[in-house]
Each structure stands twice: as structure tokens, then as C-alpha cells.
Design a binder for these strands. Structure first.
Lengths: 347, 347
DNA sequence: TTGTAAGCGTTATCAG
DNA sequence: CTGATAACGCTTACAA
């Protein structure tokens, strides 16, 4: 592979000049530039990334740390990041499926010196704390729903607002006894969705006991299993809000097995709007999250920080969610209500 | 950030010794090692990746070039790669959503000097040719179903065998008039699935005209639209093989709209076994591809090449596929027949 | 077992 | 506008 020296020699100039041509860091006479470009092209020369980042101490790469997460949400978010990064000439160094805080930290250590900034998606509360402690060394954007930004920028989705809109919609349809199946207790998204559920009930002056909050873990299976508890409640709820779509799928399956009609006997709603939500039987009313946009937004924050250097800590953006009404809630009313504020701070 | 010099000074040894401790490249007295490790830990030192790869000319990173591809298959394949890579201390430099050959080439140029080897998934035939021409400089694994390996290692899925098994299953159920909806003509997977379809019919002594091969493009919409042509055929086919699951979804939708019962009046089968296949109405008979395994396999090939250096060009692995029988084909027979050879060559 | 010193391919800082 | 030359942080002969 040709180096800058080869090009310089062949073109009859100094390495400095070649460097200047490639970086446009200083004026170069047109004729000289042409010769250099010509030679470089012929020699198939391209600056060595390692040498470059050794001296500039910039890598043009963004690290991406993802949790142990399946499915389309994950891939869509990556797509969004990738497109945004590529436009700016940045690369994505991806490390996924980290279940615990330690794994995350480990992966991060391995990335040291390979990235200029970092995007972390860590629903787990512990992991978040650990990561945010490193924001001194590295611009970090946290994607999650944590409560305290702790010095790094945060982007979260409008979990609470989405859940509130969902439950409010159910109430609007006449439901009074609405149960929920929650996600993991340590999961920030889950916590906020529960909060939204409670807020909506409270706002409508409805009371509900703890027995209406059935514990799940975001898995289809936990949704399935929750149904037994749900059906045992007296009086039986007329609607159930599963904190994510996978659990809603489990709920639909269990209700079908129990010969309980949806939405006639029980309305079911989910959260996330995964691709299959519209193909379920009946199609699932849920809350849509634009994962692609989320990813792109995260990258843009980082690029902005790299350029401007505005280390506006404690900044937090909230990505709006959309209520998607399908037939599982027993209504075919207007679709696509926007929920959640676009940005709590920033321009 | 602390450098090797800082550690050396603080520990009272030379930089060479520190390097040896971190690389285990030469024996170091136990006491010395302890001191160095201690100091390094205290200073939070970690070798700078850029400097290291400048001298060793290895980056410990694998490039991943993916097509413009949605959904879980994409994310699963990445998961597979990521896990395999991480175990070996490698990183993944990911660049996705490349629609055309030029974009792919562009992205590859940008990766120059940042990666030790490359995984390319390029269903498009042109892109493949362009990429494989670069295998002189870089160990490359191609994931696709191309016909000619052209000097780089290839991993493909058993498209043809999978399609054959699917159609054979339909024939076994008594179907005689079986249509297919094909994928894009330039798509290697699509071509092989069509080939398998034809082979299965031929093997059973069944004839079929070109009107039974309806052109699609792997999109749900094209599946939907194909149904009009399908239903216009006289005599009407009793079964249809959509070359991927998304088209099968479109087919199910269109048949439902047309009040044609599946599987009673027409059996429908797909390919890929995307997550929602089992939730469709009726659940879709299809062919499962283990994307995670595919990704891991690709990484292992590359690591193997890096270690052994066995540049056994023209090598090709074929990942087996599994027939998944659900009710859309009108049978609830045994599930999970294995199709396709595990490996055509290799140890 | 340890230290010294020569690079690796760039960019940045000076002089000219 | 251009050319020397000193870093950048590390690995690796070669010496001791």
C-alpha cells in the first residue's frame, strides 16, 4: 500500500504538500495540486487512518453500545445512526448485546482510543450510572429514559406521555377497569410507562388497586402468563395495557386460548409498534416510536458537540411517540395522535 | 490520558517492559510485572489503539458492509457477528443500507486502514463482482448466494434446497398446480429460490408454464399485487410459493380481501421465517434461516484466515435451512426438516 | 530479564 | 506557497 512518502517522491514534492492537498489545510498551487492528485490516484493512495488519528487524536468513529436487544427496533436505530454518521464521514464501531453493566464497561474499555464519542443505550439503571461517570473523557449521548442526565446528554422517548395517551384513549372508549402488565422493575422505560398509566387513571379520577399492576418482564411469555392473574380479578378488567408489544402478543395468545374475545370482552393495547403489531389478530393498538429518527438524533448531537464543543450538560431531548389505533382496543378512531414534547431544552 | 511513558516512568522501568507486560510478548519478572500492572491500573492506562495499529498494521477490527435491508434478519446477523468478534477481541465497523454497488465501494474506501478484514453482504450481483476484486488486499467473506466465489470465501444459505423442500412439501400434500411469486431478477437469493421451485416441480414430473412464475420484488406490496394475476389463472393454482415472507404477507392480505380461504382454497408458503410468520393468520409455513449463526460463521472464517493464513480461495460454505410447517399450507405435519448441505468443502 | 533506539505514516510547526 | 523536521504512542529488534 502506497504511503504519503511514495506519493511525495513520485510527484516531486514534500510530504507536507501531499498532506496539504488531502486535507485542504493550506493553500497549494493549482498545478502542484493536480500533479499530486494524479500521482495519488495512480498509486491508489489513501491516508492511513491509524497514523492520522495518532497525530490528530481523532478517529472519525463513534462507538455504539447496545443492550441485549432483539428485533427491528435495534436494527432501525442502527440504520438511523449509520446514515447520519456516514454523511459526516464518520464510522460506527458497534458493540451489542450487553446484558449487564460490567459487560458494557468492558466493551467501552476496549473501545478506548478507537472512538471520538459514544452512544450508549442502557435501559438498565446501574449501567447508566457507570457509563455516565466516563463522560469526562468522552462526549456521550445516552439513549434511554433515565431520570438524571448526570452530566451527559440524554435522548429519551416519550414513554410516559405515550402510555398516558394510550390509557386515556381506553378511558375515552368507556373503559373503567384497566389493568397493566409492567416491564422489569429496573428498566427505566418500564418504570415510566407505568407512571404514565397511573397518571392517566388518576387524571380521569379512576382508582385502581395494586392487583391491577401485574408484573411482567417484556417477554412474550410473561405476557401470556399474566393473563391467568388478569382473568382471576373480580370484577374482571375490561382492558389491559401491556408495557410492550411482545407482552401484548403473549396476552393475545393467552386470551385466545382462554376463549376470551378481543376486543369485545377485553381490549388489549401494547407499546413500541413493532412491525408485526399490525398483522396480529386483531391488529394491535399501540404506541409508535421512530427508532430511525432516534438513532439519527443521537449522532447529530455528537457531531454537534464535536464541532461546536458546546458541552451543554444536563441537556435532554425527548422523542415524541405516536398513538397508533388499531382494532385490538375496540375502536377504529383517528390514527396517529402525537404525544410527548419534542424537546425540553435546546434550540 | 496516560501513555506508556507515564507508566514506565512511574513504575521505574522502560517503556519496552511495560509493552511486554501488556502484550505478554516476552518474559517479565513477576515482581516487575506486578509493579507495572499496579501503576497502570492506578493511572487508568490502556494502550492507544491508533499507535498500536500503526506499528503492527493490524486494527483488530472487522468491517461489515450490509445492504439496504430491514428487520430482524439484519439485526440477528449482526448479533451473531458481534458475539463471535468480541470473544476474539475484535470490533465491528459497521456500514449499512447500501443500495448500489457504488455506495458499497465508497464505504469500503472509507474503511481503508481501519479494518483487518471484511464481511460483505451483497445480494446484488454487480456489487459482488466489484467487491470481490478487492480481495487481494483484504481477507473478505461474502455472504450471499452468488454463483462464482471469484477468489473470496463465501457463505450462502441453502436457498435452492430450502425452496425445493418447500415445494416438495406442497406436492406431498397433493398440490399439483403450484405458482410462485419471485423476487428481483438481479437478486441472487431470488434466483436460487426460483431454481429450487422449478427443480422440485420437475422432480415430481409436474409441468408449469411461465404464467405460474409471477414477478415480485420481495416487498409486501408486490405480493399483494401478484394475487390478482394469480387468481386470474385458469385453472387456478391450489398453492403459491412466495419467495420471501414479506410477499407472503401481501398475498395473505390480498387473499383475505378477495375472500379466498387459506389454506382451504389456496395454500400459501413463504421463505425466511421472519419473527411475525408464526403470528400471521393463518401462521405461515416457511423456511427458517439462522441469521445469528450465519453472522458468527462469517466472523469465524475471517479469524481463522487471520490466524492460519490459509487463503483457501474458492471456498464456500452453505448454511442449512429448516422447513417450518405451520398451517398456511394446510398441513400440521412434522416440523423442522433440515434442508441443504452443511458444507460443500472444508474440514 | 531489561533497556535503548529505530521506526510505523501522518500532521503540525517552523522557516524560508 | 513549499520544505524540513519534530512529534504522536507504541512495538520490536538488538544490546546488555
Amino acid at each position: 500500500m502506497a504511503t504519503i512518502k511514495d506519493v511525495a517522491r513520485e510527484a516531486g514534492v514534500s510530504v507536507a504538500t501531499v498532506s496539504r492537498v488531502f486535507n485542504e489545510s493550506a493553500p497549494v498551487k493549482d498545478a502542484t495540486r493536480r500533479i499530486v492528485q494524479d500521482v495519488a490516484g495512480r498509486l491508489n493512495y489513501w491516508p492511513n487512518a491509524a497514523a492520522r488519528s495518532l497525530i490528530t487524536s481523532r478517529t472519525q468513529a463513534i462507538g455504539v453500545l447496545l443492550p441485549d436487544l432483539y428485533g427491528e427496533f435495534y436494527s432501525e436505530i442502527l440504520r438511523g445512526m449509520d446514515c447520519a454518521a456516514r454523511v459526516a464521514g464518520f464510522h460506527l464501531l458497534v458493540s451489542s448485546s450487553h446484558a449487564h453493566a460490567e459487560e458494557l464497561i468492558d466493551a467501552l474499555r476496549m473501545m478506548r482510543g478507537r472512538i471520538d464519542s459514544l452512544i450508549v443505550m442502557a435501559p438498565d439503571v446501574d449501567a447508566r450510572a457507570a457509563i455516565s461517570s466516563m463522560s469526562r473523557d468522552l462526549p456521550i449521548v445516552l439513549i434511554d429514559s433515565g431520570v438524571e442526565p448526570d452530566g451527559c446528554e440524554c435522548i429519551s422517548i416519550a414513554n410516559e406521555a405515550g402510555a398516558r395517551a394510550l390509557v386515556k384513549h381506553l378511558i375515552g372508549l368507556g373503559h373503567r377497569r384497566i389493568a397493566t402488565i409492567t416491564g422489569p422493575v429496573r428498566n427505566a422505560d418500564a418504570v415510566l410507562r407505568l407512571k404514565g398509566y397511573r397518571a392517566a387513571l388518576r387524571a380521569a379520577g379512576l382508582t385502581h388497586g395494586p392487583e391491577h399492576e401485574i408484573r411482567g418482564d417484556f417477554s412474550e411469555r410473561s405476557g401470556y402468563e399474566a393473563v391467568a392473574r388478569l382473568l382471576a380479578l373480580k370484577p374482571r378488567p375490561t382492558a389491559v395495557f401491556a408495557a410492550n408489544d411482545y407482552m401484548a402478543i403473549g396476552v393475545l395468545g393467552a386470551l385466545s386460548d382462554a376463549r376470551v374475545k378481543v376486543p369485545e370482552q377485553i381490549a388489549v393495547v401494547g407499546f413500541d409498534d413493532i412491525a408485526m403489531a399490525r398483522y396480529l389478530n386483531p391488529p394491535l393498538t399501540t404506541v409508535h416510536v421512530d427508532a430511525n429518527k432516534l438513532g439519527a438524533l443521537a449522532v447529530h448531537r455528537l457531531l454537534e458537540a464535536a464541532r461546536g464543543g458546546r458541552r451543554d450538560s444536563k441537556r435532554r431531548d425527548v422523542l415524541a411517540t405516536n398513538l397508533v389505533v388499531r382494532s385490538s382496543c375496540g375502536s377504529t378512531a383517528a390514527n396517529g395522535a402525537r404525544t410527548g414534547s419534542a424537546r425540553s431544552r435546546g434550540h
